[in-house]
Amino acid sequence: MATPASSTAAQLDEALFTFLLRMGDNTLVLGHRVSEWCGHAPVLEEDIALANTALDLIGQTQMWLGLAADVEGQGRSADDLAMLRDVWDFRNLLLVEQPNGDFGQTIMRQYLFDQFHLLLLRALQDSADDRIAGIAAKAVKEVGYHVERSAETVIGLGDGTEESHGRMQAALDWLSPYVGEMFVSDEIDAEMATRGIVPDPASLRAPYDAALAEVLAKATLSRHEGDFAHQGGKTGFRHSEHLGHMLTQMQWLQRAYPGAAW
């Protein structure tokens, strides 16, 4: 489009800002969910592993939302974006806001997201935007470690006892309808892809399905056929009821004591 650069310079790069919120909100919401296990996991090693995973995700959130705040240029910080937005302003996938359930459901949710996250970050390392490529190069190392552990744990529990197998299959059945949203492309994705900043999410579907099939086969778990996908998280159109409840926990301190710092 032949819009003069001068007239657009001061305008918010809406597509870029939204994309960055999607990245940062995914890691923020999942990071918070995983941190809910702190002090409650079935064994100490798992407690530590979950807390470390949450820590990585929150660290990545600071980078994504920090960049989103810079791009927005309204003087908001990453903390402001995390703690002072309401549920309808969040742009995370519905998958990551789903409650922890039992340990199996938490691990299954983690694996389903980690596998997608890894493929996305690998592609983002080649982003035309250096800032995004830099964050992706940093995060991809941590996420490679996350997926190694979550895939291994899915396999261990799926191909485990009758009890653990049953729980993992139930978790997969429950969470499968949340997978499709990761690969739905909208006009934001289309614009980002055209500008060479972000891959088209639909292009990640085939490698995702292949990796998932391999892990699930080892885990002796089966995925139901069918394309039904809950949607409305990444667009913000309709989050599940769980996100609002989560935010009341996550944001209460900044809401009760605005500007509190230590």
């Binding site: 090693e45 798992e46 530590i48 592993a49 470390n52 995973t53 820590l55 990585d56 470690y145 190694e148 552990r149």
Partner: peptide, 13 residues
């Protein structure tokens, strides 16, 4: 290996 994670992000047990 006991665990892929440890007492700080940079360590495993």
């Amino acid at each position: 290996r006991i665990s892929q994670y440890g007492s700080t992000p940079c360590k495993a047990q």
